Amino acid sequence: MSVMNRRTILGAIATTPLWLGSSAWAQASTLKISHQFPGGTVSEGDFRDRLCRMFAAEVEKRSKGSLKFEIYPGSSLMKTNSQFSAMRKGALDMSLVPLSYAGGEVPEVNIGLMPGLVTSYEQGYSWKNAEVGKELNRILLEKGIVVISWIWQAGGVASRTKPIIEPEDARGMKVRGGSREMDLILKAAGAAVVSLPSNEIYAAMQTGAMDAALTSSTSLISFRLEEVSKALTTGRNSAYWFMFEPLMMSKAVFDKLTKEQQSVVMAVGAEMETFARKSAQLDDSAVAAVYQKVGAKVVDLTPAQVKKWQAIARTTAWKDYGDKNANCANLLALAEKTL
């Protein structure tokens, strides 16, 4: 390299504004948010899609346009079960996905759909600032995931035949549990389990490949499962099925943001939690009317019935999870403190 060329290059570097090095990437950022739920608008549709759109609009506004977002509903960007792994690798920016879907890859995350461990919204949302939430956050950060919004949803059971209320009601039925741990208590109750993401439930029930499915109240509505169901067990009064379904960001992507952008993302994410909780609880009630309208039998669980399922969970799902590794055992013990 000639002296002149070298001087020219060094001079250019020396006079380059510092902001180009620290913020140029962020200023030009358009982040992709993927999820499996039906798409809508900010004001209408599945609240999880609405939450993503509200989050995107507010972050763009507060970051003065330095962060923009593209929303990909209905698994249109990538397959549902690929999202968590893609975020860990930095191949996907953000996703709102049930954490337990990644249980095969990171066993600790199955705490997010542990039957009978969370039995109310108050308890679920208390995790964020409790020891269990801090430990779960630590593990997820180690795995390359940043939790942006804590979202909990109660679940119910849609059935093609009879309602599943007591554990013995599941005997002989083909049922979708939604996680390894849910599957374990269903097996203990005498059911045959079917594993698939919530956006594939409709087709399985329509063909008879599955008799019943446990899923969130919102999914029971959004995926139009009333069209293939004759019975519904709601989660509106009592539930043994609560799912942790956070809005998450790839840590590799988060770390590239400026401190100001990181602060905006986390602040808006926390603000979305009030909307999420209210929306989930509204859907817990709304789902009953949706199913009653088509003539399905709708039933609610009593606290005593929840305790029956919880008793099975303690000796099957909880034990299996706690035996996985030291992290799982610790998370379970910390979660039990919130009961």
Rank of each mutant, 00 (worst) to 15 (best):
249 M>F: 07
249 M>V: 05
249 M>E: 10
252 A>Y: 01
252 A>I: 07
252 A>R: 13
254 F>H: 08
254 F>E: 12
255 D>H: 03
255 D>G: 04
255 D>T: 02
256 K>F: 00
257 L>Q: 14
257 L>F: 14
258 T>P: 04
258 T>H: 07
261 Q>G: 05
263 S>V: 00
263 S>F: 02
263 S>N: 11
264 V>H: 10
265 V>W: 05
265 V>N: 07
266 M>N: 06
266 M>C: 05
266 M>H: 02
268 V>I: 15
269 G>M: 10
269 G>D: 11
270 A>H: 04
271 E>D: 13
272 M>A: 08
272 M>F: 05
273 E>Y: 04
273 E>L: 07
275 F>E: 09
275 F>D: 09
276 A>L: 11
277 R>E: 15
278 K>S: 15
279 S>I: 13
279 S>N: 13
279 S>Q: 13
280 A>L: 04
282 L>C: 14
286 A>R: 15
286 A>V: 10
286 A>H: 12
287 V>S: 07
287 V>E: 09
287 V>A: 05
287 V>W: 13
288 A>D: 11
288 A>K: 10
290 V>D: 02
290 V>T: 12
290 V>E: 09
292 Q>P: 00
292 Q>I: 01
293 K>I: 00
295 G>P: 00
295 G>L: 06
295 G>T: 02
296 A>N: 07
296 A>Y: 07
297 K>R: 15
297 K>H: 10
297 K>E: 15
297 K>M: 08
298 V>Y: 02
300 D>E: 14
300 D>A: 12
301 L>M: 15
301 L>C: 12
303 P>L: 05
304 A>K: 13
305 Q>S: 14
306 V>W: 01
307 K>N: 11
307 K>D: 13
307 K>S: 12
307 K>C: 00
308 K>M: 10
308 K>E: 13
308 K>G: 06
309 W>V: 08
310 Q>E: 09
310 Q>L: 01
310 Q>C: 01
310 Q>S: 10
312 I>K: 06
313 A>W: 05
313 A>I: 08
315 T>P: 00
315 T>R: 15
315 T>V: 15
316 T>L: 06
316 T>V: 07
316 T>M: 06
317 A>G: 01
317 A>L: 04
317 A>P: 00
319 K>P: 00
319 K>T: 07
323 D>A: 12
323 D>T: 11
323 D>I: 10
324 K>A: 11
324 K>G: 01
325 N>V: 11
326 A>S: 12
327 N>F: 01
